[in-house]
Structures are given as C-alpha cells and as structure tokens.
Design a protein around this nucleic acid. Structure first.
Lengths: 240, 240
DNA sequence: GATCAAGATTGGCATAGACCAATCAACTTG
DNA sequence: CAAGTTGATTGGTCTATGCCAATCTTGATC
C-alpha cells in the first residue's frame, strides 16, 4: 500500500525520505554516513539531520550508538498475544525468549492496583517485575500484581518459567478471559535504562486484566513494549 | 502506579515534569504560558521548551495551535474493539461517532492487498476510505479492501452506516473471526492533513483481517488512529 | 456599527555552533 | 607482546537566534 506523494512537507521529512532511499536494500547493521556528513551532503544543518534520523530510529528503521554511528535496524518482531504466555508465543515463532527477574515481593496494594483487582487499598498483593527479552534483546518491561500472597512462589516460578503455568498447575488459578488495553507512550529515563532505547522513543503500553471463570481478577499487569521492535496481535473468534 | 524518581534526566525532561505539575488540575482548554515565557521562567532556551512541550503533546496531555497558544488537552477516549463495529463501540460509551467518506471505488488489487485477501494481483477489489470521528473530532484514517465488486454498495452503506451490518444483511458475508495487528508509527504529512495532528505524532496503526466461517478473507483494513486520543481494547475468552 | 487593514503575538521550521560522553584506533609504555 | 593512555570521531544535549505562518487585537475607514 504505497503512500501517495506527500502533499507538502518540512525539510526534515524530505530528508527522511532521502535516507530511506539510502538504506533500502542494505543489510541490518550497515553503518550510514555520519550526521555531520549527511548535513553537508544535503546542504542542511545537523539539527535537521538529527530530526530526520530520530524519527527513523523511532520507527525502528535505524539504530544508533553514541561514539559509534548510525546503522540499519533489523525488522520488527511480530508477537501474538492471546491466552498464551509470552514464552510460548515467542517459541512458536522460532524465537528465543528470556526473562530477567527484577523484583518479586509482597507489597501493600495502592489505590490503582486495588481497584483493578477488586481489593481494598493496602491489601497484600504479590508484585512481579520482569524484563522480557527476545533473542537476548530487551523487549518489554513488565510489572504484574497478583492478589494476596502465594507461598513458595519464587521457586515455583523459577521451575516452571511461565507465570500462567504456575498459577494453573500449582495454585489452581485458571485464567478464563483477559482484557488487554493498548496505548502509546513515550520512553522516560526509567524505560531508557531498562530497555536500552532512546529518550522519547514510542512505547506500546499494554494493561492486562485476567479473570478466572467466576469473573474474579487473577492478575493485573502493565507491560511497556518497545514500539520500534514490536507488533501486538489479537485474534478474536465470533462467540459460538 | 506512580513512577519512581527519574534516575537521571536531560533538562527537557525535568521541564516536562515541571509543566505537568503546572497543568495538574487545570480544565481542558486552559492556555498555558507561551513558549517564550516558559523559556525565560525556567532559564532555558525556547528549543528545550519546545522539546518538552512536544512530548506532552505527543502524549495527549497538551494541544497547541499556531498563532493561538498551547492548552491542556482533554483525556483519552477509550475504545473497545472486538467483533463489534466502530459505531456501536462508540455509542456504547455514550460517544457520538461519525464517518466521512473519502473514497469508494473498485480498483485492481496491488500485491499486498492481493496477498492478504488470497487473490491474484490485479483482481478487482472494493476500496473504502473513510475518516472516523468521535464527538466531531477526527480519530482515525481507515482504508478497507473487500474482495470483488459489491453491487449497489455505496447506497447500501449509506443506509445502514455500519460496514459489518451491510456485509452481513445485504451480501450475506458473515465475519467469523478477525486478526488485528497493532503497532506504532509516526504521522507524516498525509496523516497530519487528514487527522489534524502534528508531524511526527505517534499513531496506533491497526491492520485487520476478517474471515468468514470457512476461513475465507472477507475484509482487509488498515486503520491509523491518533495515539494521543485513543486506546485499543481487546477481550479474549478462553476457548470453550 | 460593520468591515477591512495593519500590527502584535504565538507557535512552526531551520540554522550554526558549543560542549559533553561514549567509542575506537593508534600509540606509548612496561 | 600485553596493558594502559591518548586523541580523533561520532552521537547527545543545549543554547541563541532568525524568519515564517496562523491567529487575534486594534484601530482606521466607510
């Protein structure tokens, strides 16, 4: 679906198109000319070059490393998210998933978490914070809240790997349906540190509420995915 | 879920936090100080002020109009998208939906459309291009492709309003399941013109493939939603 | 009183350049 | 030859500034 000719465009946008042409067909990892070189080549300022490149980075077409250079980025990872787990989804696509545990403790629920889980503020909840990786690369920052305390949760989770598997097999908590909310956000310093992305990079923020067959909340999760590397897929069948 | 103190942050990010405090509790539409005034007040350059404000605009917290000023933006519109139609979803939330028809014609399918609809390139498809509005405000740019020609489609669509209703009631095309793909993109000149947003604003781009009970493609759609005004919701029930 | 014109104000785009920080290669040193 | 140092290169942040375009206000004009 080729977009029509831009009706009118600022200079940095035209430059963006130029650079897109420049990198068409190049292998991921290939370095492109330096910002200063591009500025000279296209008779413009480095500021304008940076604005063009910044958008291409935000779109996942380019990557850059201070002191090293700007290079062609690999294509997006498609990710299916249904009732399956992150790990299973990834493996189904032939990708190597991984997880880094940042925190796992029982805390008092704040107002937001309590409201979503149907608890009173201050009620104990299990808080699970992880970084999700694909092919060794950080893809998402995830914080899950589960109602109450789960005995021996840490070791059980380490054994099984998958959160949903542990909940179902060990604690008898079956997830019957989930509701995912997807919206855009911009990366702040925290996201930059955890995901290795740029300040202001677009994120896909997914909030998930999972319930059991009785309609009682089982899990409330906030996941921040890199918008430049990720695609969210949702499949829905007609009821019946 | 209040975010922790930023570990380290560029100046524009601190300014962003300042402005967030400034607008907390203000009514939507309230004008904030001019860029030049903010630059002076916080002893920084207008460039830095603009970077801070630009992110707040991208996040849907602020809006701005050249020659007029920068103002507090209204909250996001939540939108549920399942097997229901855009119009029904909106009305369920007490919002007034609308639609502007940009184009409706029978065209030869290009490679991409043909692939998704299971046709040969060049096969005729019905192309429906619309702007979706909520409360009179443009929210999304949508292009739908349907296999083949549909007799009297235009008048039937005008009568019923809903695409899915027309397909089912008039043409006997039942949608049994859909697959939505959600990713981020940045607004180009075309999006700016059609949606009244800023260059580089984050978009939620949704591709939808709808199939009938036999698994045959019924519809292939690309929708570009304003990322600052929209939330995508997907509900999935466990199979059974 | 309504209409139009001119000017002031405000955001939009772009320039030029300074300085910092990370990287990497070349060189020195033990 | 290995380890450490230095310096050039490259992206990251920020400043200061100029001009344009849209909007709104003000005031002259009919």
């Amino acid at each position: 679906m080729p977009t029509a000719v831009p009706p009118a465009a600022p200079k940095y946008y035209l430059l963006k198109t130029e650079v897109l042409g420049l990198i068409a067909g190049l292998q991921p990892g290939t370095l492109i000319p330096t910002e200063r070189a591009l500025a000279e080549k296209y008779a413009t300022s480095r500021t304008t070059v940076r604005q063009a490149i910044s958008e291409l980075v935000a779109e996942g077409r380019l990557g850059r490393v201070q002191g090293h250079g700007t290079f062609v980025a690999p294509p997006k990872v498609t990710h299916v998210r249904q009732l399956t787990s992150f790990s299973d989804d990834a493996r189904n696509q032939g990708l190597r998933p991984d997880s880094r545990l940042l925190a796992l403790d029982v805390v008092k629920s704040d107002a937001g978490v309590a409201a979503h889980l149907g608890l009173d503020q201050g009620d104990p909840v299990t808080r699970l914070e992880r970084i999700r990786l694909i092919e060794g690369e950080p893809l998402a920052h995830e914080v899950a809240w589960l109602p109450g305390k789960l005995p021996r949760f840490k070791s059980n989770l380490a054994k099984a790997g998958s959160l949903y598997a542990v909940l179902a097999d060990v604690y008898g908590l079956q997830v019957a349906d989930v509701e995912d909310t997807v919206e855009t956000a911009l990366a702040g310093p925290e996201d930059v540190r955890l995901l290795g992305i740029e300040m202001g990079a677009p994120l896909l923020v997914v909030h998930r509420l999972a319930r059991n067959a009785a309609g009682a909340p089982v899990e409330w999760t906030r996941s921040a995915f890199r918008g430049d590397r990720f695609r969210f897929v949702s499949r829905v069948k007609s009821g019946g």
